Measured scan of single mutants.
Amino acid sequence: ENVVSAPMPGKVLRVLVRVGDRVRVGQGLLVLEAMKMENEIPSPRDGVVKRILVKEGEIDDTGQPLIELG
C-alpha cells in the first residue's frame, strides 16, 4: 500500500511528517479531527514520504488519499 487514505471524513489539523522523511510502521503521519476528536493516522508500513497530498486545515472525505509512501 503506497497511498495512505483517510479512514473517516474530517479536518486535517497537523501534518507530522515532511517529504523525504523515513517513517516506520505505526508512526503518526498526520492528525485528523473528526467528531470533535483528534485521531492520529499511522503509517501502514516502513517507507519514505514521497508526497503529501493534503494541507493543514483542509477537509477530507473517507478514502481520500492523504500521503504517498515510497
Rank of each mutant, 00 (worst) to 15 (best):
P42A: 12
V19K: 07
E56W: 08
R45L: 12
V25E: 12
D46K: 06
P44V: 04
G10I: 06
I41D: 01
M8R: 09
V3W: 14
G47Q: 01
L30E: 00
R22V: 12
K11I: 11
M35C: 13
V4S: 03
D60Q: 15
M35G: 14
R18H: 10
R14Y: 07
D61K: 14
T62Q: 12
E58R: 10
L29E: 00
L30Q: 00
A34M: 13
L66P: 01
G47R: 02
N2W: 15
G57E: 06
I59E: 10
G70M: 14
G70D: 14
T62K: 13
I41S: 01
L69E: 01
V12N: 00
V54W: 07
E68F: 10
R51I: 08
P65L: 07
R24N: 08
V15Q: 00
P7C: 09
V31D: 00
G57W: 06
V17C: 06
M35K: 11
V4E: 02
P42H: 10
V54C: 14
K55L: 11
D21P: 00
V23W: 04
S43A: 11
V31E: 00
G57K: 04
P65F: 07
L69I: 12
V25N: 07
S5C: 15
P65R: 06
P42D: 05
N39V: 15
G63I: 05
L66W: 06
E1M: 14
T62S: 10
D46F: 07
G20Y: 05
P42F: 12
L29W: 02
L16D: 02
Q64Y: 10
K36C: 15
G20K: 04
A34H: 15
D60T: 15
V23L: 03
V48M: 08
L16Y: 06
E40C: 15
R22W: 14
T62R: 12
S5E: 08
E33D: 07
V25I: 12
R45P: 01
E68S: 06
V54L: 06
E38D: 06
V3H: 08
L30S: 00
M35W: 12
L29Q: 00
R18Q: 12
M8Q: 07
L30R: 00
G70W: 15
G47N: 01
D21W: 08
E56A: 11
V3E: 05
V17H: 00
G26N: 06
G10C: 11
V49D: 02
A34N: 13
P65S: 07
T62W: 11
V3I: 14
N2L: 14
N39Q: 14
V12S: 00
G10K: 03
P7S: 08
A6L: 07
L30A: 04
E68G: 03
N39I: 15
G57Y: 05
K50E: 09
E56G: 08
D61W: 14
R14F: 06
V31C: 05
G26E: 02
V12M: 03
I52K: 02
R18D: 08
G57A: 06
G57C: 09
I67C: 03
T62I: 14
T62Y: 13
G28H: 08
V23D: 02
I67G: 01
K50N: 08
P44C: 06
L29P: 00
R18F: 08
M37D: 07
T62F: 13
V19C: 08
G47P: 01
L32Q: 05
D60F: 15
G26L: 05
L66Q: 03
G47V: 02
D46M: 06
V48E: 07
M37V: 13
N39A: 12
G20E: 04
D21S: 06
P42R: 14
R45C: 13
V15L: 13
Q27F: 06
V25K: 15
D61Q: 14
V25H: 10
P7A: 08
P44Q: 04
K11D: 02
P65W: 09
G47E: 02
I59F: 14
G63M: 08
V19Q: 07
V31H: 02
K36T: 11
G57Q: 07
S5G: 09
L30H: 00
Q64H: 13
G63L: 07
V49K: 00
L66H: 02
M35I: 07
V23C: 04
K55Q: 12
V31W: 04
K55P: 07
G70T: 14
E58D: 14
G28D: 02
E56S: 09
L29K: 00
T62C: 11
P42W: 08
M37T: 12
V12P: 01
R18V: 10
G70S: 13
R45W: 14
L32N: 00
N2E: 11
V19Y: 03
S43L: 02
V19E: 10
R14G: 03
L69A: 01
R18G: 08
T62A: 14
E56F: 09
P42G: 10
G63A: 07
P42K: 15
S43T: 04
V25A: 13
E58I: 11
E1W: 14
L32P: 00
D60W: 15
V23Q: 01
V48N: 04
L13T: 08
L53I: 09
L69C: 05
Q64C: 11
A34R: 09
M35T: 07
K50S: 09
P7G: 09
G70K: 11
N39L: 15
L30T: 01
G70E: 15
E40H: 09
K50Q: 09
R22Y: 13
I59D: 09
R18W: 05
K11Y: 09
L30W: 02
I59P: 06
I52M: 02
M37H: 11
K11V: 10
L53P: 03
M8C: 12
V4C: 06
I41C: 05
D21Q: 14
Q27R: 03
I52L: 05
S5Y: 15
V4L: 07
V3D: 04
Q27D: 09
S43R: 02
L32D: 00
P42E: 08
R24E: 08
I59V: 12
R24I: 11
V12H: 00
N2S: 13
S43Y: 03
E40V: 15
T62M: 13
L69W: 04
S43E: 02
L69H: 01
E58S: 10
G10D: 01
L32A: 00
P42I: 13
N39G: 05
V3G: 05
K11R: 13
K36E: 14
L66R: 01
V3M: 13
K11H: 06
E58W: 14
E33R: 08
R45T: 10
V54E: 01
V25G: 07
K36M: 14
R24Q: 10
G47C: 07
K36F: 13
R24P: 02
E38R: 10
D60E: 15
M8K: 07
N2I: 14
P42L: 14
N39C: 15
E38Q: 11
P42C: 14
A6E: 03
V15F: 12
R14D: 03
V54M: 06
V4D: 02
V4N: 03
L13G: 01
E38M: 10
L16Q: 02
I59T: 10
G57D: 05
A6C: 11
L13F: 03
M8E: 05
G10W: 04
D46A: 10
E40W: 12
E33P: 00
V4H: 02
G20A: 04
V49N: 00
V48T: 09
G63E: 07
V54H: 04
V4R: 03
V23M: 00
V12I: 13
I67S: 01
I67N: 01
P7Y: 06
I67D: 01
S43M: 02
E38N: 08
P44Y: 03
